[in-house]
């Protein structure tokens, strides 16, 4: 606690888009309550930014740290370790920190492939000398450094222990408020809890559901769906069936399927595997061949089932193999048909 008796709060972003920061501010005038209730010791995008100040704090001196963004570079990891050491309670805020989010889809690829495209093969890149960013560069006046870029996107809790998780891409304001209120009142749930509801998006969705029997999937641009009937019933992929509620089913209400940004429900180890089994249960087929025929109408199953959760999944990434001294990802097309038990 600070001398004024207020709990000390830190907020930080790692590899993220900034949407989580906007979502914190989306609590509008209540942000003033936050400023009133907390002693904000670190919030680089809004206030005093000094890493050295954080380093100077006693271990455990920060009461709560809301950490958004995935871990993608040495710098991200350094800040995660530093803030963990200085914080009593670490919160993974938003989908990137919690499960890797869409940027976690990079785990289907590797560092080499990203460098090769961005700095060499991109049609707008002009790089006759084949320059690539380096962690250390000698310039005439001295040395410049960059943090190392990782092969694999990591979630926060794969790097440091995390007490609480706030899901969503980005989290809806009401859950941010709920978390803030819980911290202020001291009525925190048991460590390891996800701040949110434990029902599915379907429970919040006003669309009319029936006994689902899907004979094929349609791509979103292929049909104009009935506005009142369940999108999945109409053959449009919707992850709401195995996604935690809390968003208010925003996407289905504008005729677009859920993509799963709130992640899986309580107790689910692998969100993608859970989604596969949920989708499989509504396919109208009896034999493995029939099931395959229906699934063949869904392109990129890996990208649909693991859209937000690949980095946190049992697979974590595609297998890396050593080639010419570099670790490179095994091409996805060589990976056997998606199997949730596929560890490597």
């Amino acid at each position: 606690m600070a001398e004024n008796g207020k709990p000390k709060l830190a907020l930080y972003w790692a590899a993220s888009c900034g949407g989580c920061e906007i979502s914190v501010l989306a609590i509008h005038e209540k942000i003033l309550d936050v400023a009133e209730a907390f002693d904000i010791v670190f919030w680089p995008c809004v206030m005093d930014f000094k890493v050295s100040d954080v380093e100077a704090l006693e271990d455990g001196e920060i009461d709560v740290c809301l950490f958004n963004g995935a871990i993608r570079t040495d710098e991200n990891a350094h800040m995660a370790h530093l803030l963990r050491r200085k914080s009593k309670v670490m919160v993974a805020y938003g989908s990137c920190a919690m499960e890797g989010c869409m940027p976690g889809l990079a785990n289907f690829y590797d560092r080499e492939r990203i460098m090769q495209f961005v700095y060499h093969d991109s049609p707008s890149t002009d790089n006759p000398d084949g320059v690539e960013p380096q962690t250390r560069t000698e310039v005439p006046e001295g040395e410049l450094t960059l943090p190392g870029f990782w092969n694999t996107v990591r979630t926060l809790d794969q790097i440091v222990p995390v007490e609480y998780f706030i899901p969503g891409c980005p989290p809806e304001a009401k859950w941010t408020e709920a978390a803030i209120n819980a911290i202020i009142s001291g009525e925190l749930p048991p460590p390891g809890s996800v701040i949110g509801m434990d029902v599915t998006v379907c429970d919040e969705c006003p669309r009319e559901r029936s006994e689902k029997k899907i004979t094929r999937f349609y791509r979103p641009y292929e049909i104009i769906p009935d506005p009142d009937i369940c999108l999945l019933d109409q053959g449009l992929f919707c992850a709401g069936i195995a996604t935690r509620a809390g968003c208010g089913a925003l996407c289905p209400q504008v005729n677009m399927g859920c993509r799963g940004c709130y992640g899986p429900n309580e107790g689910v180890v692998d969100g993608g595997a859970r989604l596969i089994s949920a989708i499989a249960s509504v396919i109208d087929a009896k034999t493995p061949e029939e099931i395959d025929a229906v699934l063949d109408t869904l392109p990129d199953p890996a990208g649909y089932f693991y859209r937000f959760t690949l980095a946190r999944s049992l697979m974590e990434r595609t297998r890396l193999e050593r080639q010419n001294g570099h670790k490179v990802a095994r091409p996805l097309e060589e990976v056997p048909r998606l199997d949730p038990a596929l560890k490597e």
Binding site: A15, R72, T73, E75, M102, P103, L105, A106, F108, Y109, R113, I114, F117, V118, S122, P133, L144, L146, P147, F149, R219, P220, Y221, P299, D300, A302, G303, L332
Partner: peptide
């Protein structure tokens, strides 16, 4: 210096374009 890269141009490969 900008010490950040996420690689959208690569990890979007293999995804359906309409996404």
């Amino acid at each position: 210096q900008v010490p950040e890269l996420r690689g959208f141009e690569v990890f979007c490969l293999g995804r359906p374009a309409e996404e």
